[in-house]
Simulated assay, not measured.
Amino acid sequence: MGSLLAVDLGLRTGLALFGADGRLRWYRSQNFGTATRLRRAVHGLLRENPEVRWLVLEGGGNLAEIWTREGEKLGLAVIRIPAERWREQLLYTREQRTGAQAKHHAGDLARRVIDWSAAPRPTSLRHDAAEAILVGFWGVLHVGLLEQVPAELRR
Rank of each mutant, 00 (worst) to 15 (best):
26 W>G: 04
37 R>A: 03
36 T>N: 11
21 D>M: 07
16 A>H: 10
40 R>K: 09
26 W>S: 13
8 D>C: 14
65 E>G: 12
20 A>S: 15
48 E>V: 07
33 G>V: 10
45 L>Y: 05
14 G>R: 03
55 L>R: 07
18 F>R: 05
25 R>S: 11
59 G>K: 08
23 R>C: 12
29 S>V: 00
48 E>A: 08
17 L>N: 14
51 E>P: 03
28 R>M: 00
31 N>V: 08
65 E>K: 15
10 G>Q: 07
19 G>H: 09
65 E>H: 11
10 G>W: 06
66 I>G: 15
12 R>A: 06
64 A>K: 04
35 A>R: 12
8 D>M: 06
41 A>V: 01
15 L>P: 15
46 L>S: 15
28 R>A: 00
13 T>V: 13
50 P>E: 00
34 T>D: 05
54 W>R: 08
19 G>V: 04
22 G>T: 10
45 L>P: 05
47 R>Q: 10
23 R>L: 03
44 G>Y: 04
13 T>Y: 14
29 S>R: 01
21 D>F: 00
7 V>E: 07
31 N>F: 07
30 Q>I: 12
64 A>C: 01
25 R>F: 03
20 A>N: 14
56 V>M: 04
52 V>E: 00
25 R>G: 15
65 E>Y: 07
40 R>E: 02
40 R>G: 10
54 W>I: 07
29 S>G: 00
41 A>H: 10
52 V>M: 01
8 D>H: 06
50 P>A: 07
17 L>T: 12
65 E>D: 09
20 A>H: 12
37 R>P: 00
9 L>S: 14
61 G>R: 04
65 E>A: 11
12 R>W: 00
17 L>M: 09
40 R>P: 01
54 W>C: 06
14 G>I: 06
30 Q>C: 09
11 L>R: 05
44 G>H: 12
42 V>Y: 09
17 L>W: 10
14 G>L: 03
60 G>W: 09
25 R>C: 11
24 L>V: 08
47 R>T: 12
63 L>H: 02
11 L>A: 05
55 L>Q: 03
47 R>H: 12
50 P>M: 01
61 G>Y: 05
53 R>I: 04
29 S>Q: 00
63 L>D: 02
8 D>E: 05
21 D>V: 02
35 A>D: 10
66 I>W: 15
13 T>P: 15
41 A>S: 08
42 V>T: 14
33 G>S: 07
26 W>F: 11
24 L>T: 10
52 V>P: 01
61 G>N: 07
41 A>R: 06
38 L>D: 14
41 A>D: 06
15 L>D: 13
10 G>C: 08
23 R>A: 03
18 F>S: 05
31 N>Y: 11
25 R>H: 13
59 G>Q: 01
14 G>Y: 04
50 P>T: 03
51 E>G: 11
52 V>F: 03
53 R>Y: 04
30 Q>V: 10
35 A>N: 02
62 N>M: 07
7 V>R: 12
